[in-house]
C-alpha cells in the first residue's frame, strides 16, 4: 500500500491490468486443432525423413490418427 514512487503508480496499475488481460487468455484451454496440427507436422516431417516410400504420408491430411503416425515414424528417423 505504501508505494513511494507516485509517478509509477498509474504505470503499475496499467501493467497489472495488462498482465491480467494476458493471463486470462493464458488460462484458456488450447483448442484441439493445435495439437492436431502439431501431430500432422510431426508426421509429415517423419514421413519426409524416411523418404517417399512411406505410404501413409499422403493420407495423413485426411485421417487424424496422430498418435499412431508419430509413433510409427520414431524408429525411422535415425
Amino acid at each position: 500500500m505504501t508505494r513511494t514512487s507516485r509517478k509509477s503508480s498509474l504505470h503499475q496499475q496499467i501493467d497489472e491490468n495488462l498482465k491480467r488481460v494476458f493471463e486470462e487468455t493464458l488460462q484458456q484451454d488450447v483448442p484441439d486443432r493445435f495439437m492436431d496440427l502439431l501431430a500432422q507436422l510431426r508426421a509429415k516431417e517423419k514421413a519426409g525423413d524416411a523418404g517417399p516410400a512411406v505410404p501413409e504420408a499422403s493420407s495423413l491430411t485426411e485421417t487424424t490418427d496422430q498418435t499412431g503416425a508419430s509413433d510409427a515414424g520414431k524408429g525411422l528417423g535415425s
Binding site: R3, K7, S9
Partner: peptide, 18 residues
C-alpha cells in the same frame, strides 16, 4: 501507456492508490 491512461481518463498520480 499515455494513450491508455487518456482513454481511461486517468492521469499520473491518479488511480487506486491516490
Amino acid at each position: 501507456r499515455q494513450r491508455l491512461a487518456q482513454l481511461l481518463q486517468l492521469e499520473d498520480g491518479e488511480g487506486l492508490l491516490d
